[in-house]
């Protein structure tokens, strides 16, 4: 009977649904890409990893008969490597301000002396002796590892490079506008050049006019302004890891020459420019 649900009706409907899904796939899925994005506190992870590495590092830890004692720092080695202060810890923020100051030269560590650390990041290392640490006296060792600037970094930080990079990225491949101005100014330049210097003058006038017209109209005033600003932009925004407090950090022991062992903490802070 006409209108009955037959197998062919079902197959036809299935084909229709399949066709609709195919169109959907072509329209959306073929244009859709899966990408992953990782959100994390990189600085914190870097700090914790580095602090863990430092408490096993041969330049810091106590050694006896060729045996490395992880987590036990040798005060003699720390004295040789770090800036040491014994002033009282009245105000933690005051101390941090001093250490975090870029002009803090006493604590600058050489990468040759301490071969652990991220080359691209500024790293602050504090080791604090918590025994008898009070307002009058507190032993703290501090050091700063500055980023190693490579030739690539120098080039990328150069204002000339930044300007031309910005101009290159700003160009929208619209050749019509500068070409039209080139032609217009070339004609004007040729007439003026021709009046002054004959055919040679006309040629020079045309070339100069075309170049001025082309370059002048290749970018908008806003693009020029943006790239001049970009060239002079200095990166001031910094990410500072949160683990920069004496209440945090990894617990360590500090062994002195007389054999006494004190309780302490190692704090590693990472500072890096915002990309």
């Amino acid at each position: 009977m006409k209108g009955d649900i037959t197998l062919s009706t079902i197959i036809e409907n299935l084909l229709m649904i399949g066709f609709a899904l195919l169109i959907l796939y072509l329209l959306y899925f073929s244009k859709m890409f899966f990408t992953t994005s990782l959100e994390q506190e990189s600085n914190e992870r870097y700090s914790i990893l580095l602090a863990n590495g430092l408490i096993s590092h041969e330049k810091l830890v106590y050694e006896k008969n060729g045996r490395i004692f992880r987590g036990i720092l040798d005060a003699k080695k720390l004295d040789a490597l770090f800036y040491k202060t014994e002033t009282g810890l009245r105000n933690e923020s005051e101390f941090r301000e001093k250490i975090l100051n870029p002009t803090f030269k006493e604590g600058k560590l050489s990468r040759k002396e301490l071969d652990i650390g991220y080359n691209q990041l500024t790293i602050y290392i504090y080791i604090i002796d918590l025994n008898d640490c009070n307002e009058n006296k507190c032993v703290i060792w501090a050091g700063v590892l500055l980023p190693i600037e490579t030739l690539d970094d120098w080039v990328k930080d150069n204002p000339v490079y930044k300007f031309f990079k910005c101009m290159y990225e700003s160009f929208d491949n619209n050749w019509a506008r500068p070409t039209a101005t080139c032609a217009g100014l070339a004609a004007t330049g040729a007439i003026i050049g021709g009046l002054i210097g004959g055919p040679v003058g006309a040629l020079i006038g045309a070339v100069v006019g075309c170049a001025a017209g082309f370059l002048g109209n290749m970018y908008s005033a806003a693009e020029w302004e943006n790239c001049i600003k970009e060239a002079g932009r200095d990166v001031k925004d910094m990410y500072v890891s949160k683990i920069l407090s004496f209440k945090q950090g990894l617990p360590v022991n500090i062994i002195y020459e007389d054999g006494s062992i004190h309780v302490g903490r190692i704090i590693v802070g990472i500072v890096r420019e915002k990309p």
């Binding site: 992953t36 994005s37 870097y46 830890v61 490395i68 004692f69 652990i116």
Partner: peptide, 25 residues
């Protein structure tokens, strides 16, 4: 995709390289 993503692999590998410094010997 999350396990095999380049960002994850780069992070994991870099972390493991740094973490290898933790072993004393």
């Amino acid at each position: 995709l999350s396990l095999s993503a380049a960002e994850v692999v780069a992070d994991q590998l870099a972390t493991l390289i740094t973490a290898s410094s933790v072993a004393p010997f």
